[in-house]
Simulated assay, not measured.
Amino acid sequence: MSDDWRERKKARTRRAIQEAALRLFLDKGYEETTVAQIAQAAGVSHMTFFRYFPTKEDVVIEDEYDPMIEELIRSRPADEPPAARVRHAVTQELALIGAADREVVLTRLRLMLSTPALRARLWENQYRTQRLLERALSGEDDPAPVPLRTRVIASACLAALVTALTTWAESDGADDLPALVDEAFAVLRGEFD
């Protein structure tokens, strides 16, 4: 068996677990849904669930988008303004997300915003995302201190992105997400200029 086949199988299993969990959370409620119910609905064992998601919260919080954003930021021209690099990377990523994935993102956002246990984990996730943005913008992989300017720009970009995503979720997906992202970053451009 090839490594590519194994990776595709892992991705399918991960997606099946997440989709089953989201369906159950919407039908029964987050708190009322157990990991055992999610595993059964996804057709996997309880232990398989934990190989993919360390906690029930992770099935909603964790996604594959941050590493993609980091890669897209690093691929932008180094002389491009930092906030523009992040905006272009996010815009590129949104173009790659299909309608079905967008619905999953919207469902996850709704759950995160409405479920106290998930809101508590949201800050931890945002902190990791900010550190990722800092690394991508500074071009550094080591734990050396990132300059304050870069940290502030990464934080402002994250705030703009989170605000756009929250606004989109509050509109129940009716607003155009790429337009909201562009508008949020336009506000930043105006402040940075």
Rank of each mutant, 00 (worst) to 15 (best):
Glu7Ala: 15
Glu7Cys: 12
Glu7Pro: 01
Lys10Tyr: 09
Lys10Ile: 04
Lys10Gln: 06
Arg12Cys: 01
Ala16Met: 05
Ile17Gly: 07
Ile17Cys: 07
Arg23Tyr: 08
Leu24Ala: 13
Leu24Cys: 12
Phe25Ile: 05
Phe25Cys: 11
Lys28Pro: 04
Lys28Gly: 00
Glu31Asn: 07
Thr34Phe: 10
Val35Ser: 06
Gln37Trp: 10
Gly43Gln: 10
Ser45Leu: 09
Phe49Pro: 01
Phe50Asp: 00
Arg51Asn: 14
Tyr52Val: 04
Lys56Arg: 12
Asp58Arg: 14
Val59Gln: 13
Glu62Ala: 13
Glu64Thr: 08
Asp66Leu: 13
Asp66Arg: 15
Pro67Ser: 02
Pro67Glu: 05
Ile69Cys: 03
Glu70Arg: 14
Glu71Val: 00
Ser75Tyr: 01
Arg76Cys: 08
Pro77Gln: 14
Pro81Ile: 02
Ala83Leu: 08
Ala84Phe: 05
Val86Arg: 08
Arg87Asp: 06
Arg87Met: 07
Glu93Asp: 00
Leu94Tyr: 05
Leu96Trp: 05
Ala99Gln: 10
Asp101Ala: 13
Val105Lys: 00
Leu106His: 01
Thr107Gly: 01
Arg110Val: 00
Leu113Ala: 08
Thr115Pro: 10
Thr115Leu: 09
Pro116Arg: 15
Arg119Gln: 07
Glu124Pro: 05
Glu124Asn: 08
Thr129Gln: 13
Leu132Lys: 13
Leu137Trp: 12
Ser138Tyr: 10
Gly139Phe: 11
Asp141Tyr: 12
Pro143Cys: 06
Ala144Arg: 15
Arg149Ala: 02
Ala159Thr: 01
Ala159Ile: 00
Thr163Gln: 04
Thr166Asn: 07
Thr167Ala: 15
Thr167Cys: 12
Ala169Lys: 07
Ser171Cys: 08
Gly173His: 13
Gly173Met: 13
Asp175Gln: 03
Asp176Gln: 13
Leu180Glu: 07
Val181Arg: 01
Val181Met: 01
Phe185Ala: 08
Val187Gly: 02
Glu191Gly: 11
